[in-house]
Design a protein around this nucleic acid. Structure first.
Lengths: 340, 340
DNA sequence: AGAGTCTTCCAAAGCGCTTTGGTGATTTTG
DNA sequence: CAAAATCACCAAAGCGCTTTGGAAGACTCT
């Protein structure tokens, strides 16, 4: 059932039927009702291919997915997707993932924009002066950044959490508990979130006249194994830290294992706070010693970004507003006063 | 730069240019070269919207993503996606995720087929007599099932691993080591993979005249917390098992925690084998006691399924061939002879 | 009553591609 | 050497929508 047939059986022109269905004003309300009724009864659904050829609108949002045999997709992605999908579903939006060579995403961005394959895109895991952000900004496609970039001469719309504030609070608490030697097990420090977290820790330490020494900060992709390695390295130093802030729950698993392997205890010998993106399958309260966390649901972020993208597509949102969400500091058993 | 302009500057008809570019035979090789050259030089790329309106081909593969506030996307998904994306990238295929109400995916399948939004789809986490499989089969869109369904009067194409064989081998090893009371911590037993795994364990036990008692099998979604709960329940029974087969590494984390909480040891008091889908961020060899596993890379499965979908789209693959991959049993420190 | 203004509808022109159904020119065939 | 086959190309008709540029009729206003 296409528009031609439908309009024919209604004895109306395609124009009128199209307009009736799309809510244009120049059609009699009585006629509109007839049309809408008939369309529903006949199960008419406009062919999206035809519509996009005519309008350029696709009803899809895009994401360029960096791939490669040595490239791993972040497990956070799936939670983000849950939120995004949940919103998108209720608004009949689809998500198209365009796999790209991790070292050349630009080609893909250009392609999906030139081909008008999607109405908007989002960008995740941004770095300072991220080229993708600059690119989509000049290409002129609606977009939202999940996280923040830095160092541009233009503004852009983003949704981020207060990484600096979160890790500032975490470090401040540890300092107040008497810790003098803090360490940070961070994610990839080419990404902005990691930079902000380090900044937060340093600021908290500086406020008490302390420093984060270079050998007390690790920056690694967030795997259990890397968490273990980092923790061992830190704890086997002569001036081993008495407290660690850790950028991920998965890494924290490794930290806990290292602590155990070394015959130490949490929080007796080491206090630990990790960032929790809220996975359904791994909860900080279930660690053998319940883990203190800075908590922010990445799933909610996904839903929010879908919402903003939808708003931009339909012209309801404009400009370069950035929003920064506060992060909860949840104190559980893994922190205590510094050992004597 | 569109076809019209290109053909005009070449002083050829759109027909000839189109055919030259798409490799049709009825065009002089010399002319074809001219056309291809010009197209490359001008950076001409056919508008996909127009092409799909004309041909119905989209260059996209689809996946219906079950969503809902209470629905969690399986973390395995992201690894599967890595493989899928890696293949898709090299073949200029995009993936479109259509979020659907988890309780009504049929509407979405019908929509993407009726609208010709994708050239093929894949289905994951199938159950016996899975309605989605029956549906796409009748809808007539090319598809591959990742995993297996059961109980249809038709065949369908799938790629699965030998779950029954894997857990049969695992259980057989444990029995040979003298274990008499085995337990199974399984995934959702409405899904085929879980049924097959249980079948494998039962078969191995039966071969030695043993049984899998009802209170020794747990079926839960695969989270750390559920692994913990299941293990505690099992180990606090009067006839506690001396060996556990576990369907996921994430659950195994919980099992290990439970064992520790109960003051038991692996493998002294309990032998443990888990299934490993090969995550980059959590490796069985890094468990405090290295974990024995049945191993099969879900990422490779993703790449294979993308490959088969591509083959089906281009007509290179037909029929209902199912393939079943063998699974490695990797023995590490977490198994030992049954305690006396 | 005639001019202007809405209201409500329509015919037809895109959107940019593929594909059908030819048409001359050249080569092959009996 | 005429007939048949092949080659290399083209004009135009879709694909199914949206949107432009009217146009007919009803209504208002002076």
């Amino acid at each position: 059932m296409n528009l031609k047939q439908l309009s024919h059986m209604l004895a109306l022109s395609q124009t009128t039927v199209s307009r009736a269905l799309n809510g244009y004003p120049e059609v009699n309300e009585e006629t509109r009702r007839r049309v809408v009724d008939a369309a529903k009864r006949q199960g008419y659904r406009p062919n999206p291919s035809a519509r996009r050829l005519a309008t350029g609108k696709t009803g899809m949002i895009g994401y360029v997915l960096p791939t490669g045999t040595t490239v791993d997709i972040d497990p956070h992605f799936v939670e983000f997707l849950s939120g995004l999908g949940d919103y998108a579903r209720s608004h009949e939006l689809d998500l198209v993932l365009s796999p790209a060579d991790a070292d050349d995403q630009e080609t893909t961005y250009r392609r999906i924009v030139a081909n008008r394959q999607v109405d908007a895109v989002y960008i995740s895991s941004p770095r300072p002066a991220d080229r993708r952000v600059a690119l989509v900004n000049t290409l002129g496609i609606p977009f939202i950044v999940h996280g923040r970039s830095e160092g541009f001469d233009f503004d852009y719309p983003f949704t981020d959490i207060d990484n600096e504030g979160a890790f500032h609070e975490a470090a401040r608490l540890l300092v107040q508990l008497g810790h003098r030697r803090l360490a940070l097990i961070n994610g990839d420090d080419r990404e902005t979130f990691a930079i902000h977290r380090e900044r937060g820790v340093r600021r908290a330490l500086a406020a008490s006249g302390l420093m984060l020494s270079e050998q007390h900060v690790c920056s690694l992709t967030m795997t259990e194994e890397n968490g273990y390695r980092a923790a061992r390295r830190l704890l086997e130093q002569s001036d081993a830290p008495t407290a660690i802030a850790c950028s991920s729950l998965i890494m924290a698993l490794g930290v806990v294992r290292a602590v155990r392997d070394l015959g130490l205890t949490i929080p007796g010998d080491l206090s630990l706070i990790a960032h929790d993106d809220v996975f359904p399958w791994l909860k900080p309260e279930n660690f053998s010693v319940p883990l203190s966390t800075t908590r922010s649901s990445i799933r909610l972020a996904g839903a929010r970004i879908a919402e903003r993208l939808a708003a931009r597509i339909s012209g309801l949102e404009e400009g370069a507003r950035g929003e920064v969400w506060p992060v909860d500091l949840v104190v559980r058993g893994s922190v205590a006063g510094a050992p004597a």
